[in-house]
Simulated scan of single mutants.
Amino acid sequence: MVEIKTPEQIAKMREAGLVVAAVHEATRAAAVPGATTKDLDEVARKVLDDHGAKSNFLGYGGFPATICTSVNQVVVHGIPDETTVLKDGDIISIDAGAIIDGWHGDAAYTAFVGTGHAPELVELSRVTEESMWAGLAAMKAGNRLVDISKAVESYIRRQPRPATGKYGIIEEYGGHGIGSQMHMDPHVLNYVERRRGRGPKLVPGMCLAIEPMVSLGTPRTRTLEDEWTVETIDGSWSSHWEHSIALTEQGPLVLTAVDGGKAKLAEYGVTIAPDPAA
């Protein structure tokens, strides 16, 4: 069953989404050479505390931290610790969430640590982020779930191949419904799998987290002994971007973007819904 939200519930999710945006801003500033991933977790924890919000990651299935910090070849679910020290030239994907009055927000971004990053890494992050926005722009009443998957995959496939030869769209993980829980139906693939069909219709009140993960090599991954950290099996570096979005009677609203997605969705000819936080 797909949970359908009322306008009042979406307004609460917008509050949670703006807290996630604040966590992103603070952790991005703190992701500098010499910082540990534990340092970033402490920054995120303080932002949540300052906003009276709870982490929806801490304790989820036993996860031991406030955020996920995935460095270089780590795709998702990296656990912050005191021994992972960020170095000049690293990339890090930070996944964060927040709960306000029982309603969830969830978003991720890839940041560049220091300077001197190879052009293919910069392009990897750009392609991953833009494929996310293509998927968000497909969140329209009358579309079906597969239209989001198709938009994400099509954007990536249209891009010039990197020097490594290909972009690997990670298949084991994808987006999800979000609302009174962090992970809910439906599962949102970042590619089209024909046997799954077209999926449910997108209707007002539906909220999704859209999150492509792309590597500079294989789409295949493995989970490390900590039972959380997921990395590419060939060691290729990867990028992860995510936003939570609501579909309302007046159109979409990107719940975890400061401007509600107004600027980026305008590039796709999409006008966002009125922002309850405005």
Score class of each variant (00 low, 15 high):
104 H>N: 12
133 W>I: 07
102 G>M: 06
35 A>T: 01
121 L>A: 08
121 L>M: 09
100 I>Q: 07
67 I>S: 01
117 H>Q: 13
48 L>Q: 01
33 P>F: 05
101 D>K: 11
36 T>V: 04
97 G>C: 07
124 L>C: 04
104 H>L: 04
120 E>A: 13
22 A>H: 09
111 A>S: 11
142 G>C: 07
97 G>N: 03
12 K>S: 10
48 L>M: 06
143 N>R: 08
28 R>G: 07
84 T>M: 15
58 L>V: 04
112 F>N: 05
84 T>N: 14
28 R>K: 12
122 V>Q: 15
32 V>R: 15
118 A>K: 08
9 Q>E: 15
128 T>K: 04
79 I>F: 12
50 D>K: 12
28 R>E: 08
41 D>M: 02
114 G>D: 04
35 A>F: 00
112 F>L: 11
63 F>L: 00
123 E>C: 07
138 A>K: 12
12 K>V: 13
47 V>T: 09
121 L>C: 05
141 A>L: 05
60 Y>N: 12
9 Q>D: 08
23 V>Q: 07
63 F>N: 03
85 V>N: 10
101 D>T: 00
87 K>R: 15
25 E>I: 00
28 R>L: 03
44 A>C: 03
11 A>H: 12
40 L>P: 03
93 S>W: 03
142 G>M: 09
94 I>L: 11
55 S>G: 09
17 G>H: 04
28 R>D: 10
43 V>W: 07
86 L>A: 05
104 H>P: 01
99 I>S: 13
39 D>R: 10
46 K>V: 13
127 V>T: 11
70 S>H: 06
85 V>G: 12
78 G>N: 10
9 Q>Y: 12
123 E>P: 06
131 S>T: 05
113 V>S: 03
34 G>D: 11
74 V>R: 03
21 A>L: 04
130 E>K: 14
133 W>N: 09
80 P>D: 08
122 V>E: 15
8 E>D: 15
60 Y>T: 00
41 D>R: 04
40 L>E: 09
5 K>P: 01
